[in-house]
Amino acid sequence: MPLLQITDLHASADEKEILKGISLTVNAGEVHAIMGPNGSGKSTLAQVLAGHPAYDVTSGTATLEGEDLLDMEAEERAWAGVFLAFQYPVEIPGVTNAYFLRMAFNEIRKARGLDELDPMDFLDILEEKLRVVQWGPEIMERAVNFGFSGGEKKRNEILQMAVLEPKLAILDETDSGLDIDALRIVSDGVNALRRPDRAIILVTHYQRLLDFIVPDFVHVLAGGKIVKSGGKELALELEAKGYEWLTGVAEGAAV
């Protein structure tokens, strides 16, 4: 059974159809890149999978290990093993990173019938996870994403992914707004989290990220549909030719 199976997924926001029939199979251990021009629906796909209430799924299915993902609330998807690294991580003043991460960790454990960890035991786990993003413990006393630089916010998303250990991680434009050093730290973090029992979907506009995190498959999304799929060499082709030759295909296919 594939980890994630998306079949003919249609979704809209404010009654405007954005996803127009997406089908995608992702197996455990694989890294898929979803590329495409602005407005192609890449971020919408990420948000629909995570359960954003602003999007209506009008038809199609999405299952995680055979379970209907679309029937679950966003938190239930997290309990089931879905993680979305946000393009724009949300600031939560008044809640420390340490408190937030431990609460998230324990809520997921509780949902899976496991014991909650007390702050001391959690600290041991945290220390190890902080190394994934090359951070010291001082970041944990700051309010969640509050006053963080763009790079710090993205690192914090990867730290959360490391702590929450999802089966399916969706990284939405994680490379946007990062300088080369931050991109390297974030990519090293993601690579350290690649595992045979975990799949990763990278949503990105640029090929640059794929120099650091090498995908197994590349899909091009245009006009709400996957217009081309291939191996990692497809990303290089896109880098050389741009998206126009494919978006042309998309328009032709829609006729």
Binding site: A50, G51, H52, P53, E73, A74, E75, E76, R77, A78, W79, V82, F83, L84, F86, P89, V90, I92, F100, M103, A104, E107, I108, A111, Q160, L164
Partner: peptide
Amino acid sequence: DEQRYYLQTRGIGGRTA
């Protein structure tokens, strides 16, 4: 709403959020 959704995606839902 965005903060609530963000917490939900981290497994913190409903009343706890």
